[in-house]
Every structure is written in C-alpha cells, then in structure tokens.
Design a protein around this nucleic acid. Structure first.
Lengths: 214, 214
DNA sequence: TAGATTGTTAATCGATTAACAATC
DNA sequence: TAGATTGTTAATCGATTAACAATC
C-alpha cells in the first residue's frame, strides 16, 4: 500500500479530470479535522459512486485498507503528488491585460505547485512594472530570458489573433505546457507539447444551453 | 431540413460541450468566406470524426444536404440558436475584484447572447463606480434590484467562503443559472438551478499532471 | 471473531465509430 | 447520370457500475 507509481498504462482523461476534485474534497475533509474516509462516504459527498472512486484510485496504487477505508491526510498527499503539487514547476505569464493581471494578483499558483518567475507583455506602459512581486518584461526579451530560465508552463492571456504565433515561438524555446485562456484551439506538431484550455465563452454557452433546455 | 427542434430526448453532456467548438469553428470558416463544408472536412480541421459530427448534429435536426454537405452560415446560425446566442439573456456579476473587473472589461458577453445589467460588491470603495458601462451596486441592494430586474445568470467572482450562501440567496430571488468562478462545488435543492464551473486550479492541476506524465 | 471496506473482476451502460441505403 | 455526402442503423469500444473474494 502507498506506492504512488503508475499501475495502469493509459489513464483516461475523465479520470485525470476527477483527480483535482478528489484533491479539493480531501483537503477540505482535512481542514475539517476528519482523518478517515471510506469510498462510500466520499462518494456520497461528491455525488460519485464508491465503485468509481475505488476504480480511479486503483489506477495509481493501493491507498486504502480493507475494513477501514482511506486515511485522509495520506490519500490527500498521495493525490497531490500524482498531480505534481510538490514538483515546484516554473511558470511565466504572457499578456498582462486585465485577465493576466487578475491571475497574477489572485490566483494561488503556489498552492498548485507553481512558481511564477516572470511576466511578459508588449505594452510599454506595463513593461518594467511589478505585479504582485512579478516583474513584467518586454516580449522581445523572451528568448534571452528563457535561455537562462527554463519554464514548464506558460500562461497565455494574450489576444487570440497572436496566440498561435506566440505559442509557436515559445515551443521553439522549449516550452512544453500551455495554460491557454485565448478562445482558440492551439496546436503543435510536437506531441509532447500539452495545451490546457480555459474557454470562457464555451463554458458560458453551455450554461446558456442548459438554462433554456433541461 | 433546417428544423432546430430537439429530436432526441437526452442530449449527453459530451455533445453539449462540443457545440460551442462547432460554433467557433463555423464562425471562423464564415469569417474566412467559406460557404460550404462537409462533415469530413470539418472533422479534419477539428480533430473529430465525420461520424461523430453527423451524430451530434442529428440530435437537433437535419441541417445538411446529401452530396453537398452543410451551408456554413446556416449551420452556424442554427447552432447559435441551439446555444441560445439569440435569446438575449440577462446577467449580473457579483464580486467586482480583479477577476470580476477583468470579465466586465474584456469578456464579450454580447457575442454570447448576454446583456450585463449590473454588478454587485460589498466593498464601499467600488460601490457606485461604473465598469465598462456597468454600475456597481451594494450587495444589500440585490433583493430590491432583482425584484425589478429578473436575470437569467449570475457570474460569481466572489471569495469561496461566501459562495454557497450568496448562491442560496440568489436562488431564493429566482436566479436559475450560475457561472461559478469560485473553486468550490455549489449546489441547490432545486434541480432547475444550473451551475457551470470554471475551476482554474483544477484546470492547471490537470496540466501539471500531463506535463509530468504522458 | 464479526463487520466493514478494500481492490479487482465481470456486467452493464453509453458514447464513438463504421457502414450503408437514401438522395441531392 | 455519376459522385459525393448526408442521416441513421449496427458494431465497437471504453467508461461506469455491480458484485465479491480478500482481508484489515
């Protein structure tokens, strides 16, 4: 028990997307001082079957104990490790507009295991500024800066028109992960490069559909 | 052909979530001046099988023509109607912090079919201000204001601690749709109430997982 | 020990893909 | 007409749920 090695070859996207929810729920149980949880009770709280929870966890190891359930802190830390919360990834943000600014100010990058090393923008007005401890640099400095400071992920909060070209440029500089807030589908010839999209408009439109239909 | 009535009883969530992507892609084809598209070519551009595209569309009507394919403008408008882009929904935003501010400034609510009627906050500093044409009111005014101005959707950009209680309050005032940016799972006893979540942290954590694993 | 609950195997369900007759 | 492509039915694939032996 307790080995956080990958046991299954192909973890489905559906499973991966449930992991952060487990992590959140377990963190909350922890905060509430609860030390033990069964798949049944966790499932009830999350609206998920106990079966699914056990199946999901079994992709990554054996974290429970028959007759007892799961130790909340251990399971929470285990899932945190699976998600990479302890890896101290490095990240930069490109595009310090309203949204980029809001993320720099509010978003708990640290809690997700990320350190924000820099921000970049084209507007002379913001270049040189410091937002929540992060220095804003000119986009022209990206090559030199990334040469010395490799990063794992780039947050893209730039206009959609330039998203793909900026992404291409960053891929050529070694970036392999993009947190994409532009409402376009980005792609790369290199399959190692991962894109995670936050499509605001898509999200609101599904809500629009649902309030009018089901 | 061309009837945008619901033909299937239960449209799966997966289908609904693909609709905005179709809408985006078709809008782009339109902007590029392309008038005709087949399920095969649309699928190639989107990384989806032609079969799936035809299955998806057939949930809502018969929009194509054998031997020809789909008329881009018609199909785009049809999907826009399905998503409710033409319904002129009304919306308010609650929580005018950095993120709320950014959404008010940047997000194209109008293109999604929404009119922003007001914003609310607790901070005396922002109450009375106008952000991108939207007046910020005190949360104490919500009851009176919503009594006179019913809305379809509330954007929640408030601290997570107060999210559920504010949502409850709004549900009791007749709100049936929430665009939830707080990183908590909200719920309502009323199954008519829909929650659409944007979980930033969950999204970044799945990216964190993927850059380290597959 | 008896009861509880796991991890896993088997059964079910639903979603995706393939195939094809209909027809523009 | 011949070629292309639809909408739909059938086949396949994968994900969820149920069942249960193992065991704490």
């Amino acid at each position: 028990m307790g080995e956080s090695v990958l046991r299954k070859e192909n973890i489905s996207d559906a499973v991966i997307r449930r992991l952060p929810r487990y992590y959140r729920q377990l963190s909350e149980l922890r905060a509430r001082g609860i030390t033990r949880v069964s798949s049944l009770s966790l499932g009830r709280e999350m609206g998920i079957t106990a079966s699914q929870i056990r199946q999901d966890f079994s992709c990554f190891g054996e974290f429970g104990q028959q007759g007892y359930g799961y130790h909340v802190r251990e399971l929470c830390e285990e899932i945190g490790r699976i998600l990479g919360v302890d890896r101290n990834h490095h990240l930069i943000l490109v595009g310090v507009g309203h949204l980029g600014h809001a993320l720099l100010q509010n978003f708990p990058f640290g809690k997700c295991g990320f350190t924000v090393d820099a921000a970049f923008d084209v507007a002379p007005g913001v270049i040189g500024a410091t937002v929540n401890g992060v220095t804003v640099r000119g986009m022209g400095d990206m090559e030199a800066w990334l040469g010395k400071n490799p990063v794992d992920v780039v947050v893209l909060t730039i206009p959609r028109e330039v998203a793909q070209s900026v992404a291409d440029r960053l891929v050529s500089l070694g970036v392999r992960g993009f947190w994409n807030f532009t409402n376009v589908e980005l792609s790369s010839a290199n399959p190692e490069v991962k894109f995670e999209n936050i499509h605001f408009a898509d999200s609101l439109l599904t809500l629009s559909y649902r309030i009018a239909n089901d």
